[in-house]
């Protein structure tokens, strides 16, 4: 088994290549840019501190992804989030780096599906799904009715699920299997 040796050059490459993805992963759990940045930075620090023990036969990116997720959830746990949820849905999967094997391509598929949404559908998608505004707030911001927002949400979701059925299925089976 090849031993992966990390020096500062490799660390910098890893950092610059993966930072963005890991940051948005943390953000999706935390919705807090400062904490998200701190957590991603801490994960790289940990990789550096453990560089002599790291013998990684799987991809380092999956390792980083799962570390970011676990730390994000731990952060929320400290914020009094029910521990059972964490152990049930996620931790029980053995800190599964496996789940992250195809994660980038899943996100990429989602991105493509979003890009193909019609213009108004996309602006509603942005408010509801990305900024997570309520229907009422979205309606007010875009100057449309709540019912129009609902229609767009339904259509967007239908399209995304249609386009992504295969990928998401894989991912979610993985989570629910661990029940």
């Amino acid at each position: 088994m090849a031993k992966l040796l990390i020096n500062t050059t490799i660390l910098e490459e890893l950092f610059k290549e993966h930072y963005n993805s890991l940051y948005y992963h943390a953000q999706s759990f935390l919705s807090n840019p400062e904490v998200a940045k701190d957590i991603v930075n801490d994960c790289f620090e940990e990789v550096w501190n453990k560089r002599n023990q790291l013998d990684i036969s799987y991809s380092l990116k999956s390792f980083l992804y799962s570390m970011v997720r676990n730390r994000s959830l731990n952060y929320l746990k400290r914020q009094e989030v029910e521990k059972k949820y964490i152990s049930r849905t996620l931790h029980s999967s053995g800190y599964g780096e496996d789940e992250y094997q195809d994660y980038d391509s899943v996100l990429d598929e989602i991105r493509k599906a979003i890009e193909e949404l019609p213009p108004q559908g996309r602006s509603v998608f942005k408010k509801c799904f990305i900024e997570n505004l309520s229907y009422k707030e979205t309606a007010e911001e875009l100057n449309i009715s709540v019912n129009t927002v609902k229609t767009h949400v339904t259509n967007s979701l239908k399209k995304l699920r249609h386009d992504l059925d295969r990928d998401l299925l894989l991912f979610f089976l993985h989570v629910s299997k661990k029940k």
């Binding site: 950092f15 930072y19 940051y23 999706s28 790289f44 996100l107 989602i110 990305i130």
Partner: peptide
Amino acid sequence: NELRQYKESGQKLEQIDAPNIGLEWQKL
């Protein structure tokens, strides 16, 4: 989990609150 992934991908696409990687690297 599904909606969280939509959010993740969407935020990445729109580069919402994009981090300054050079600055973060310097901090590290």
